[in-house]
Nucleic acid binder design. Sequence first.
DNA 1: CCAGAATATTTACCTAGGTAAATAATTAAC
DNA 2: GTTAATTATTTACCTAGGTAAATATTCTGG
Lengths: 138, 138
Amino acid sequence: METHFLFHLLHQKVRHLSKELNKVLEQHQLYNSQWTILYTLSQKGPMSQTQIWQYLDVEAPTVTRTLARMEKSGWVQRVPGKDKRERIVVLTDRAQQELPDIQQTIQQYEASYVASLSESEQQQLYHLLNKLGDKKER
Amino acid sequence: METHFLFHLLHQKVRHLSKELNKVLEQHQLYNSQWTILYTLSQKGPMSQTQIWQYLDVEAPTVTRTLARMEKSGWVQRVPGKDKRERIVVLTDRAQQELPDIQQTIQQYEASYVASLSESEQQQLYHLLNKLGDKKER
DNA sequence: CCAGAATATTTACCTAGGTAAATAATTAAC
DNA sequence: GTTAATTATTTACCTAGGTAAATATTCTGG
């Protein structure tokens, strides 16, 4: 099998997916990646920035920037922690209020996107993706 | 199954993959996305920019920019076509020369990444990815 | 206690992707 | 044949991701 096409397809799908998700999220004035953070905070409660980037497996500057934008547009607030180096990120009231609505939008979109696969195919896909790139001793 | 995790995993994998690929390509002074274009041109021969973005399913400004960078670093040249609006993209001699080497680097990396899956799992994965998001009448 | 290491965040600089609108050249329609 | 629509590319402006280095605190070993 031509591995090239597999990787190309992977790329394409993710790009396509982000693009559409961003379009769907327009109605909430939100972006894909911002949603990821919003969702994480809604599940885990207030977190420091470091906790966020480690959890999302993204570099620190990436979340600094995204959070700055989210703070500006009123989704989160960054309050100082006991340790004066760190900033704790908290959802704003507005975010709390709009969350269910947004979640429904996402849920619906994701469901429609995944509808082309049966339940067991979805699990297969998850399983295979998870296994992909799992280095033994690469 | 929680679709959320499937999409999250997809994102993560692709990000992780690009990151590593870029690192591997450093030795050739090349980036992931630039390689994609280089490879396409090596397979298809000279193409107009429009042909490139349509084939790669990317927006026009994206390839304009990437080609500009590639031209500056000596991978491609853009020559005017008969139609004075279009620019035909051609690989430079240097690109031609270095291609086999780079291809080997990529090949090797991709093979190692995909080695965690059996041949038939790879095909399964390709099949499922391909099917994912296939709208009937979404 | 205090100098040096470690940690949390930020800044500066890069690539890659997107949209909307501008520009230039070609085609089509009258 | 000139005007209007279409096509190819670019520009300006956005988000998202990365690395390397700077800054500010906190921790630690002597």
